[in-house]
Design a protein around this nucleic acid. Structure first.
Lengths: 213, 213
DNA sequence: TAAAATAGTCACCAATTAGTGACTATAATT
DNA sequence: AATTATAGTCACTAATTGGTGACTATTTTA
């Protein structure tokens, strides 16, 4: 019959659920998705794992809930699309692509999600991919297609290659190598080289389209 | 004078070691590096896991031995480099890049290695990355640098972006999505779009360098 | 042919993992 | 205040994991 003079733990289901969701984010960011074990998640949240089963049904559903709760493409979705486009969207695309290059580098969580998306088959990851396709489609149909017309298909492919490269270079860097093609991606110079290349390639693609119209 | 009523298991250390190495390859190809557990490897090899410790020292060393035994860049290393280059290497680069796009798609084991390389920090994966850098450096110094001169740095960055894109698009495809930027990468048309874009961008980069010389 | 060396097997241990039943403690309701 | 609902704890099971000591079986050597 011991009296508990210790501070009485707050009893709040919603807050606890949020703790679990936050714990998933923390582990994902620091250790990656492979470390998302129910015991670790509970320990990180500072709660008993039983609650994960009570509240979410299990680790799977908790992870699904976590992914659904995040907006991974907020940095690109409504960032731009001003009305007064006079250059066919060249300038906007330059900014979107180069800023995305930096955004992926800074957002470790996004990196893990990208990696996860090419590693594991999972419904919520499919949803993320579909959502990004949707946002990309908006950009393509409102900016690229009108300007490139019949050449839009070629430009789409080039853009896909560039965005993919933006992703991969950031995932690649600093895990098992610093350089790619002799460019040190851990230095500001090296990263500037990539960004300049992005702009150069967009310039070339746009100049090509002009000369072909 | 051996009696072979029950087939007597062959006793051969070297062969058994090779069995383990092959088992690593099989598991890697089919289930990925995360599934490289000592029990599974032993079961796949049809031998006792104790032998892994006896022969290699442990799973880590076995995996190291496996990676060291493979030549992952055989398809690109000495594929080309003919002597009579008259176009500054444009045609060779087109072939190297587009064939690499197909090679990565077909070689599931290479895909897993690429994925592994951006997921886990590991000495032997660093060696693979370093080796690829070496091969790439050869290409760059013998083909690109002489032609692009002071512009070589810009071209290197563009090439890094393109090769990275080639990797990522192949890793991306068919796990959680089929399309990237609206292009269906599971169809021959979609993949041809990417290859055409690669050639187009190389054309643009080369034409740019000409007009600037 | 006997003995030494070693390829290979097997049973077992300890740690980690997911998951659950029974319980306690607190808040809400009457 | 007594009752009820439920947030949260804890101890336990079962399966999987990496790892090892002791053993058997086959080959090599003296």
């Amino acid at each position: 019959m011991e009296k508990k003079t210790a501070q009485p733990r707050e009893r709040n289901k919603e807050k606890s659920k949020q703790r679990f969701l936050d714990a998933v984010g923390t582990i994902l960011e620091t250790k990656g998705f492979a470390a998302l074990k129910v015991n670790d998640i509970a320990a990180t949240a500072g709660l008993d794992k039983k609650l994960i089963y009570n509240y979410f049904g299990g680790t799977e559903q908790l992870i699904e809930a976590y992914i659904s709760s995040k907006d991974f493409w907020s940095n690109v979705s409504m960032e731009a699309l001003p009305s007064g486009i006079t250059d066919g969207g060249l300038d906007i695309l330059k900014r979107i692509f180069t800023s995305q290059f930096d955004a992926v580098q800074e957002d470790k969580e996004l990196q893990k999600i990208l990696l996860w998306g090419i590693t594991e088959k999972r419904v919520s990851l499919q949803k993320i991919a579909a959502l990004r396709e949707e946002i990309g489609e908006q950009l393509l149909t409102t900016i690229i297609d009108p300007h490139f017309g019949t050449e839009a298909r070629a430009f789409r492919a080039a853009a896909a290659l560039m965005v993919s490269g933006i992703y991969y270079l950031n995932l690649y860097t600093d895990i098992n190598a610093k350089t790619f093609g002799g460019i040190d991606l851990t230095t500001e110079e090296g990263r500037q080289d990539i960004k300049s290349a992005i702009e150069m390639m967009l310039d070339l693609l746009y100049s090509r389209s002009k000369s072909n119209l």
